[in-house]
Amino acid sequence: MRKQDVPQDWGPEAEVRRLMYAVDESGRFVGVQSVGWDVSNTGFNKYWEHVGQIIAAARADVAEGRKSPLWYWMQVSLLDVRMLADYMGLWRWRVRRHMRPGVFAKLKPALLDRYAAVFQIEPAQVRSLPEEDPENLPIHHAPGQGQGA
């Protein structure tokens, strides 16, 4: 890639001005900062759209009583059962079991506190579904909009 061909399409990468390697006029490689490329911008948008759908589906599952609120908190923390079990120091089948509303209702407060610590939320929050999705994720849909998706 030549230096003048380094794409500068404004996108999420503008926040970090990522470094690219390109050839300058004398044929040497130099580092060039870029604010994004249409391809990677689309990649970001599509990825977060995908994650947003997963979170919306999780919200619907919890609201309709198919899963416990842990399922929602796991998805907004971008975790999966394997990783969550590793953070909790539990076996995966136990974490999977805790995703069932009936089992979840009987969990001891100490265990719920540990879950809350992994999700970085207040212990009381982990028991229920929040009104709005956390703001630290760039998911595009408004909460509630993707219900049933």
Partner: peptide, 12 residues
């Protein structure tokens, strides 16, 4: 595309 272009690689 994400793994190729987005995950810090200096391009391509």
């Amino acid at each position: 595309v994400i793994m190729q272009e987005v995950v810090g690689s200096g391009g391509a």
